[in-house]
Design a binder for these strands. Structure first.
Lengths: 104, 104
DNA sequence: GTTAAAGCCTAGTGTTGCTAGGTATAACTT
DNA sequence: AAGTTATACCTAGCAACACTAGGCTTTAAC
């Protein structure tokens, strides 16, 4: 559904906040105006992949109420990668726009 | 490289012109400002897939000079599908824009 | 005490588009 | 004439991606 742009979406959604997986799903749904409603089977493996790639760092947090959560934050290379991916998206989108003749 | 939008790009590139595969590659390269340079291994199977799906129709043409070409044109459902895919792309792109906080 | 919500996870799978080859004809170079 | 480049088509196999469809645990609500 996110067509190869999932990583950029995850990095941008986390931003400076340090969110856990479930909250990331809700944040994406909210920020996209309900457009993207990602299943857990999509985001959890992706978070693991991004952590393995060194773009995210996770820690377990025990909140006052509720159960333990795994919370993700951007690393330095994660921040760097987000900048690059944002630029990559804009370049990609303007390329498609040109070919489709939309939003020229 | 086209992240799931290849079909829309192909349909839009062909448009009303009836192009053959090789010309489609060049047209995409030109219209995207050199951004998309698709290998043949990408577009030929995609054209076959779109023809099988009834969105394209092909015929062999023997030009005055040069070798035989297989020329593709949109069918009625191809035209319909292009309209839908264009709308789909705009909706998708604005969703990503919102999440990435770019081109808001 | 049972159901629903919050929260995490994985195995398996289908789609997609790429790599890396192969074939053939025409045009241009040397 | 021979070799190279450009034109033009094709396929098998593969890797990435994200989805389906499950499973597990804990807390809140009824």
């Amino acid at each position: 559904m996110l067509k190869g742009h999932l990583d950029a979406v995850l990095l941008a959604t986390i931003g400076d906040e340090a969110l856990h997986g479930y909250a990331i799903i809700e944040a994406i749904r909210a920020r996209s105006g309900g457009h993207f409603d990602l299943p857990e089977g999509t985001i959890y493996p992706a978070l693991h992949r991004l952590e393995l790639a060194g773009l995210l760092a996770s820690r377990w947090v025990q909140p006052d109420g509720g159960r333990k959560r795994r919370v993700y934050a951007l690393t330095d290379s994660g921040r760097q990668s987000l900048i690059e991916r944002r630029a990559g998206w804009q370049s990609f989108a303007s390329g498609i726009d040109r070919v489709l003749g939309a939003r020229a």
